[in-house]
Write a protein that binds this DNA or RNA. Structure first.
Lengths: 343, 343
DNA sequence: TATCATTACATTAACGATAATGTTACAAAA
DNA sequence: TTTTGTAACATTATCGTTAATGTAATGATA
């Protein structure tokens, strides 16, 4: 039994329409009436029924966010960035985890669309064209964060992964490293490809041979990093002089796994091996040693996405497609060290 | 221009009502018609307009979750626990951060209620009676997670903080510790009080004097833990024989700060000081040394809360108030060690 | 004075779904 | 034969809000 426009109208002996218009400061209503309506609404504790409003206006004042896993700090910081902009404009957010599963991603999207969200933020779990056709057909604005699907004409906000890879290579090179183990996520993920390209581009600028980089792939998880590193170490002829002096990790998660593997073989970081991560998780300055890494600034990505979303919502021409790129930031810590030319 | 019931009705030359009832498997509709309607709905790609449905049924199929900060893994795991149950029952979730601010908490709650959520999960940021009156007046079921407000007759799910404190004390005592620094969050937070009570209860059982525990308070943050520990260490007459051998921390965050302070004074964990945390953050096994801690099982708390929510939604009598308590789990790692009687 | 705007409202009709009634046609019961 | 019941639909009203019209009173204009 919440208060409705009708209640206010009856209280004041005016029509429902008058109340509705008064509350929205629309013309054709006298100043006195407007004031009276607003006072009465406040007194009775009126709250607009947004669902009913949506039925007429098709504006739900809700936006949906789909992420692989909100427990991953990268995604929770993106969420906060988005929220920061959205609450200012009194939009409310629906959140859903896809758990990296295309079916769940689709299901969550469908749910949100059924609820009439005015827009969707999607951090795709993987190559999932299903959700893209969904989004296209839904006819709501959407922004894709973090991952990029080259063929797609959509709005993207992502970290400049090429630059991130470049920065990492530059950092390691300037410390004297000339042989690298590059642990990547599967290359069909665009960010994996871009980081790798950036990494190699810098080395090429320094006239380093491609053979100086050993590439391995694994899932972006601790176990993934652990296993791949363990296997690599097992194949070394001389453990204390491994065939690479520095390890690039696709994510801090991977780096944690790398740490475990390295410590299992009684090697030290950075004395025996330098390690650089990617993402700058909140805890990467609590590890031992603290982890040098590349920060993708997820909060900033979230904010930028939300800004684009409101551009889309407020403009009628949805034909224009925006691509925003955020420069990552190198975070220097203790897992990388200068090495001499003879090492 | 999404498909509506009307479109299906026109396609089949039946009434809208028939379509509506057929899709919901209600009586008074022939089997053939039902099948035909369902096929046509699927063929045309019909999707129910949940907002319109809500207007009649007052069931929005949305639930709201308000947490202090989704970037805190404790809360994101609670979220996932809740989501796990909710997606099964095709409820969609609205999420909002209060940032520990009573006004934001209220605002977020209002927004969700305006959207007509069928229930609210609240992890209160602090003693905020405002949001409670809001929830009471809103006349929707709600569950309060983690924090408990003794005066309130509501549904609570929380970790057994008394037990957690008890477990921590027991662990340290059994390792031989007899003098403690107890770093608490402000005592007006019920969980801080409960943990402390549990901690002291165990020591009392062992006939240890209350004076064996030094109590300090700080915010549950790294800086909080750092500052309070630094101050404490500064006051020690002999740094290498501090007036306590073990430090209890209200949270893993606090423990990280404690780590920093201890390492700043060139003391070692656990050789010079044992440290035990609380929460079992995802990264607490990546710290150096890995952190012994108490896991409150936030995922389990979330799931339990969701179950209670659906009990509330599905039962008419909202008079009954449920209090579920989840037992925490001690996680043994390397930040605590056995000490001899002479140390 | 008759006409025309303008102001400030009221009335009516949607939005899409559902619930409460109506209305057939046909079969069974009295 | 008439009544009654029932299966299977259709009609209508309604949720709360907003948009599209309608209308009365007032003042300005010709």
């Amino acid at each position: 039994m919440p208060i409705t426009l009708k209640d206010i109208a009856e209280e004041l002996n005016v029509s429902v329409n008058t109340v509705s218009r008064a509350l929205r400061d629309m013309p054709d209503i006298g100043q006195e009436t407007t004031n009276l309506v607003k006072e009465t609404a406040a007194r009775l504790g009126y709250r607009k029924n947004l669902a009913a409003s949506y039925l007429k206006t098709t504006k739900s004042m809700m936006l949906g966010i789909v992420v692989p896993d909100i427990c991953n700090p990268v995604f929770s910081y993106m969420y906060k960035g988005i929220e920061e902009i959205c609450t200012r404009t009194s939009y409310t957010l629906m959140l859903g985890n896809s758990n990296g599963n295309p079916d769940e991603e689709s299901a969550v999207l469908s749910n949100m669309l059924d609820h009439g969200v005015d827009g969707i933020f999607l951090v795709p779990g993987m190559k999932n064209t299903q959700s893209h056709t969904q989004l296209e057909n839904a006819n709501v604005p959407y922004v894709i964060l973090q991952r990029k699907f080259p063929g797609l004409s959509a709005n993207f906000v992502q970290s400049n992964d090429f630059e991130g890879g470049y920065l990492a290579a530059q950092h390691l090179y300037q410390l004297g490293h000339r042989s690298f183990l590059y642990i990547s996520a599967p290359m069909y993920i665009s960010s994996a490809q871009d980081r790798y390209n950036g990494f190699m581009a810098y080395l090429k600028e320094q006239n380093l041979a491609e053979s100086s980089v050993q590439i391995l792939e694994c899932d972006s998880t601790r176990t993934g990093g652990y296993k791949v590193t363990r296997n690599w170490l097992e194949q070394q002829s001389d453990l204390h002089h491994p065939s690479a002096t520095a390890i690039f990790c696709f994510s801090d998660y991977v780096a944690y796994g790398v740490y475990s593997a390295i410590s299992k073989y009684n090697l030290r970081i950075p004395e025996d091996l330098s390690v650089i991560g990617y993402d700058n998780n909140e805890y990467s300055d609590m590890t031992f040693p603290t982890l040098t890494t590349v920060d993708i600034l997820p909060y900033k990505i979230g904010k930028q996405s939300a800004k684009i979303m409101f551009d889309l919502i407020n403009s009628k021409n949805n034909t224009q497609h925006i691509e925003a790129v955020i420069s990552p930031k190198l975070i220097l810590r203790n897992s990388t060290r200068q090495i001499g030319p003879d090492e």
